[in-house]
Amino acid sequence: MWSLSDPAIGFWLPMALICLGTGFWLTDRKDPRKRLSVPILLISIVFIVVYGVETRGMDTAETALLAVLLHMLGPVALMAIGSLIATFSGPSPVGPLPRGLRPLGFMMAMGGLLWIGWMLISKPPDAIAHGIGETIWGSWVDVFLTILILVAALAGSFCVMMGEERHKEALTLAILTIAGGVMFNEIMQNGSEGLAAAGWHQIHWEEMMFLIGGLMGVTAGVFAFIALVYMAEKRAPDPDVIAPLSEEEKAVVDAVLRLNLELEEVE
């Protein structure tokens, strides 16, 4: 019996439908499939939400992932909205928001960051505190901190390399790298609420290495796709030679050009 509480139906099928819906969305706007893309995406989201509600409290990996994403939705949204407000209320020519909102934007972004920092070292909710949920939550935190440290260092050093006295930007990103490094060191040295240091070490060696391989796999998959498209296009036959215009077609082109030139002269 098919049930939405089965992860294959309630979680992985919507994931496949989202991919299919994305394909529909990429079609030409006159194509009827284009109109199907939004309903398919909405149905997929409804399936996932119903799956999450029906399996709430169960120790399954998919439910734990949804719990982690729900847990992080607030601070990530706060940071994203804060960054957008700060960007569009700055002196940039595309800034349509009032300049007074800029400090609020930065406060929201920093607030989201501090919220995440607090969540990383406080006891997680029950849904992600035991079993597979703990592993998934631990992997999320480990990857988040690692990427935060690496990308902030990359962006900061890029600012320094670019010159033009981007010291404020470089300094802010350096603070982010150091704060991430301190948190990483803390959880690896002393553990966190509900997860001992040995648990973090295991997550780092097993899940982090798995995800490094995963990143390489995603990159290889995308390159394989590009290679297939390249091969297909390379094998495509040359387009047929177009016959020159007939006298009748030339007359039509001539008439269109004359009409447009006359219109321009009138203007």
Binding site: M79, A80, S83, V141, L148, A155, L173, G214
Partner: peptide, 19 residues
């Protein structure tokens, strides 16, 4: 889970850098 964490971290850093 790893991909979402990666996207959140990259989005945070570049969002802040853009601002």
């Amino acid at each position: 889970s790893g991909i979402t964490a990666m996207m959140a971290a990259v989005g945070l850093v570049f969002g802040l850098l853009l601002a």
